[in-house]
Simulated assay, not measured.
Amino acid sequence: MLLAVDAGNTNVVFALVKESEIVARWRIATDPRRTGDEYAVWLHNLMALQGFDPGDVEAVIISTVVPRALHNLQVLASKYFDVEPLVAGEAPVEWGIALDIDEPTSLGADRAINVIAAHALHPEDLIIIDFGTATTFDVADYKGAYKGGVIAPGINLSLDALVGAAAKLPRIAIEAPRDNSVIGTNTEDQMHIGVYWGYIAMIEGLVERTRAEIGRPAKVVSTGGLASLFDEHTDIFDIIEPDLTIQGLAMLYQRSR
């Protein structure tokens, strides 16, 4: 089995992949100080609870946008799984796609991987929206080349900033407003409307402008935990791929073989 590790700014996702199928996944809060030993205790226990043996892991591939977390994840792979981990974007698992942007080395690993996976699954012009710590919009052409994109504050970041800067505003859950109204009659309803419908308006507006700039029809692929929440009240997404990054890591690993 392959252990695919996606270290994001908020969470680290560990997934077991067997013959291109994701058979288990776990997540833990990102903390660059967490050691390989700590990861091992946590992960081995979870694997045992679901009946997996660490000895069945034959390879490890890591993607990270948190450079300080990489070393401890490499220690986890070499010390506790007895394999030399592959690092996405580094030999022998380079991206293998054209990066038609000003600073290719600045592109986050997760975004490159999402483009690789989305193009493999949907080989056409694409707009890929990833709802993470930041909400990113990535554009890939029908040849699979990365053309650029947009970085916007994630909805949780936006809400944290709003609540943190306004002393009387309460913490609210991220959910659709009641009755789909856009006119709130109390503080909490007004916050729900501003956060939820405001975010949908941003998504729809940016997709519309992006499609106009591309000049050709483009399929919208969404991923990330909040994609399904927004999908309830907009038809802007053509398809949701909840495990896009893990799928991309598995594809990179297969390519390296």
Rank of each mutant, 00 (worst) to 15 (best):
I155R: 04
V23K: 12
V57M: 02
T105W: 04
R111F: 09
H71P: 04
I174P: 14
V83F: 01
L229I: 15
V57H: 01
T136A: 12
A40C: 11
G132H: 08
I127M: 07
F230H: 06
F81R: 03
D141L: 12
V150F: 14
L43Y: 09
N11P: 04
I61E: 00
A24S: 13
H122C: 06
S222I: 05
V150A: 13
F131P: 06
G149D: 08
D110V: 13
D179L: 10
G205T: 10
W42S: 08
F137M: 11
G154K: 04
M191C: 08
D31C: 06
I174Q: 10
Q190C: 15
V115Q: 01
G55T: 12
L99Y: 08
A176E: 14
S256M: 02
D6R: 11
M191T: 10
N180R: 15
G96W: 13
S78D: 02
I183H: 07
I97C: 08
I246F: 03
D110C: 08
Y199D: 03
A69M: 12
P104Q: 07
R211N: 09
A112S: 11
D82N: 13
D56K: 12
F81E: 00
M47A: 12
A77N: 05
E103T: 15
S63F: 06
P153M: 10
I28H: 09
A152F: 09
A91T: 05
G248T: 01
G224M: 11
I127E: 03
Q74N: 05
M191L: 15
E84R: 11
A134L: 10
I101Q: 08
L49N: 12
A91Y: 13
T105H: 10
M191I: 15
V83M: 02
V87N: 00
I129G: 06
L107T: 05
F237N: 02
I113H: 04
N72Y: 08
I127D: 02
E103I: 15
T210E: 00
G8F: 10
L86M: 14
V5G: 07
E58Q: 14
V57D: 00
A176S: 14
D160I: 10
K143W: 04
L86F: 14
V139S: 04
A134S: 14
W95H: 05
T223L: 02
T133S: 15
F131C: 10
I62L: 02
N45H: 14
L73P: 12
K79A: 13
G108K: 05
